[in-house]
Amino acid sequence: MAENVSGLTVRQDTETVSPMVSFENVTKSFNSRETGKRAFKALDDVSYSVPRGAITGIIGRSGAGKSTLVRLVNGLEKPSAGRVIVDGTEVSALDEVALRSVRRSIGMIFQHFNLLSSRTVYDNVAMPLEIAGVGKQEIRKRIEPLIDLVGLSERTRHYPAQLSGGQKQRVGIARALASEPKLLLSDEATSALDPETTQQILELLKTINRDLGLTVLLITHEMEVVKAVTSRVAVMDNGRIAESGRTFDVFTAPQHETTRSMLAALPGGSLPDWIGRQVISEPKPGCDALLRLRFFGETADQPLVSRLMAELGSPVNIIAGTVDEIAGEPYGTLYVAYSADPAVMKKAEHFYARTGLNAEVVGYVA
């Protein structure tokens, strides 16, 4: 299913799943401090379901509405219109007392860790259980395995000042798991970390999802994070869901301009500058066509470029390329150039149709 937004046809995720979270026609507006009137619409008629047991990414630029969306899940904000349902309960209709019970089933990890400097690793992780009135023996029974799970068993009595950024985030994850939640919310949890530490935290989230069966809703502006860890993704733009679906499908065949623009920032997602400056939009006599070839599925492990050269009977210049994984599936992008002669282009079209290789003309070069 697709719908038209701002003149663009965008993919909508219609897979039948058992949702952990459902947003039903959710709108959220904020009042102007000066006039008291609603002046800013952060979310605009959002409908989306987060499947149970999956790691789902919500991605968008700053101001797209993604953080507002996650604050609706744990009741920190209420929608101006529409419904937010978590595990069968409409949280948007609950009062503060009823929300406390729901929040115990929702874990939260933050960008800046939010640890108490005067408490040890153990005490920071134990804090939600202490607040809930859980006994010391039960706290110890729950906390020690969690600290071991996040790899901090040797730092149980350390204070936050003695920990690295990655270790602090591990404490935050263990604390979020202490109340045995059904849902884990991650709001830009890796944004303050270096790339190596980010990868370690993402691997930990995958382990938690796999071993505990925990649903994870991950809010981020980083395409690399979504690519590495999520199975499904929704792209937000100006308070709306621009497109959504399997992460692999959205990344390999983006429908919305926002998605294409964000993907261009990934390694191999755009042309090198030195060749980009030479690209022209219309062919001229003697020029080459510049194409982006995408390899995935059955085309990922076949020698299609060598077969393309044999098919065309013409040189094929490899300009740039990358091979990667998206949500655990192989994917490659290759920029090539070959003669823009109509006869050569026609042979190439037949080759792509026959082999299933995804090819797109991005311009022409002299």
Score class of each variant (00 low, 15 high):
T299W: 00
A265V: 09
A54W: 00
A2G: 00
V279R: 14
I219M: 10
D123G: 08
E325W: 09
A343T: 07
L146Y: 13
A242W: 06
Y352H: 15
V125R: 09
S62K: 10
L214Q: 06
V362Q: 04
D237G: 01
W274E: 15
L334C: 02
V21N: 08
G286W: 10
D237L: 03
A64P: 10
R260C: 09
S47H: 08
V344D: 00
A300Y: 05
V150L: 02
V73A: 10
I59N: 02
L183C: 05
G268L: 05
S270L: 01
E349Q: 15
V316Y: 00
E90N: 11
I326S: 01
G88A: 10
I109N: 06
E144Y: 07
I139H: 09
E96D: 15
A340Q: 06
T258L: 09
E311M: 02
A178M: 01
P283T: 08
E3K: 14
T220R: 03
T14S: 08
V5K: 13
L202F: 11
T35L: 10
S67P: 04
I139Q: 14
R210S: 03
G239K: 06
L290R: 06
H221L: 08
L185G: 04
I85F: 09
I319P: 01
T220P: 05
L214M: 14
R119I: 01
S118D: 12
E180F: 06
Q167L: 08
E34P: 00
A132F: 03
S281F: 00
N358V: 12
V125S: 10
E138S: 15
L69W: 00
V125D: 07
E188Y: 07
V171R: 05
I59R: 00
M20K: 14
D13N: 13
E311V: 01
H256T: 09
D211A: 05
R292Y: 03
D95F: 02
M108G: 09
Q302Y: 07
L116W: 15
R83H: 13
K141V: 05
I85W: 10
S105E: 15
S270G: 06
T247I: 04
V10M: 06
Y159N: 02
P181Q: 03
F248R: 05
S117A: 11
